[in-house]
């Protein structure tokens, strides 16, 4: 009798990495907080440190964890659904749908000053616009998913929707004023610093829901790796599985994009990095591992984006791609092969 390997060492590495980066993320920033002050600042009122920790650093670190694990899980679900290593959470066009509506709010708002002002006074406006944009594409994709029967067609349709919405965004950018354009461009660069406790609550609920649905689909996800015919022969209901995978990914991508902007790279790369660390196909192990990996990567990227000790801040998207891409290239070259 043989059991599947448990990967204790790898799990421990991921856990230590996650906790370590979480602590580092809180203590590092434009104001560096020494470790002892960090502990006391967490527990007792230490004036400025406590304010920084509780009002800024911890929400930001938790946002990194939620966004990182959400995007990475979304990426894993898409790569498995499409059996395609190039898939990420944004392939369904949700991110570009969100971008489109945010672009409309920020760039078209200029023609209607009154509307634009009311919208800007509401700090949730961008989040709501992004959610609505994502949801519109999402409903479109869901209805198409019920109509087309194979995954490759769905992938291509997702990419086409993505391309079409992106081009509308380009047109809007081309015709808009420099100031509005800058606000929009800053949003597209991604940020984890804009979420307070209230937004964090909403993000946590939606990401939690998305990941729970994903984890509930472990059997279907594993089955999908065999291909449609074998999966159906194993009594896996393909239509229902595909629907719920799309729902889970939609929730994860939509929520993260709404609060943090379109964060690139994490969803595509983390599943590959995790599979190189833990070479396994069982999603029961892969999903928690990918969550920890995504959270760790985003925490690390955020630390680097803050340029510890300086008041300068780099755009998050630049950092995720800049440090992530060479790592993935190196790993792919080293292992000669990459797949789902």
């Amino acid at each position: 009798m043989k059991r599947q390997p448990a990967f204790w060492i790898q799990s421990l590495i991921l856990a230590v990495l996650l906790v370590g980066l979480f602590v580092a993320n809180i203590s590092l920033g434009s104001v560096s907080i020494p470790f002892t002050n960090l502990l006391t600042g967490l527990l007792a009122d230490e004036g400025i440190y406590t304010d920084i920790i509780w009002q800024f650093r911890i929400p930001k670190a938790l946002t990194c964890i939620l966004a990182g694990s959400g995007l990475a899980t979304g990426g894993l679900l898409m790569q498995t659904l499409f059996r395609n290593p190039m898939a990420g959470p944004d392939v369904l066009g949700l991110t570009s749908g969100a971008s489109l509506l945010v672009a409309i709010i920020l760039l078209v708002g200029q023609f209607n000053v009154g509307l634009s002002d009311t919208l800007f006074q509401n700090p949730w406006s961008i989040a709501i616009a992004a959610s609505l944009g994502g949801a519109m594409v999402f409903i479109l994709i869901i209805s198409i998913a019920n109509y087309v029967k194979d995954n490759t067609s769905l992938l291509i349709i997702g990419l086409m929707i993505s391309a079409a919405t992106s081009s509308v965004v380009s047109v809007l950018q081309f015709t808009s004023q420099a100031d509005d354009l800058q606000i929009f461009l800053i949003w597209t660069l991604g940020s984890v610093g804009g979420t307070g406790w209230r937004e964090l609550g909403v993000l946590a609920v939606v990401v939690g829901l998305g990941i729970s649905i994903g984890y509930g689909l472990v059997k279907s996800l594993n089955g999908l790796l065999l291909g449609d015919n074998y999966a159906r022969n194993l009594n896996i209901n393909l239509g229902r599985s595909r629907f719920w995978i799309v729902v889970a990914t939609g929730l994860l991508t939509g929520a993260v994009t709404a609060f943090c902007g379109p964060i690139a790279f994490v969803g595509l790369a983390v599943p590959h990095l995790i599979r190189l660390l833990i070479p396994i196909t069982n999603h029961k192990i892969l999903i928690p591992a990918v969550m920890a990996g995504g959270a760790s990567l985003l925490l690390l990227c955020d630390i680097l984006a803050q340029l510890p000790g300086s008041i300068q801040v780099l755009p998050l998207n630049a950092v995720t791609s800049l440090i992530g891409a060479p790592v993935v290239i190196w790993l792919v070259i080293k292992s000669k092969r990459i797949s789902v």
Binding site: V218, K219, L234, I280, N282, V340
Partner: peptide
């Protein structure tokens, strides 16, 4: 047993045979 190719490069023989039990397993496999 069909002629369909399995594309996953990480799957082991044991993993593959385990799939045979899937029709009898709950969602947590």
């Amino acid at each position: 047993v069909l002629t369909d190719r399995i594309t996953s490069s990480l799957m082991t023989v044991y993993d593959l045979v385990t799939y045979g039990r899937y029709p009898y397993l709950n969602w947590r496999v």
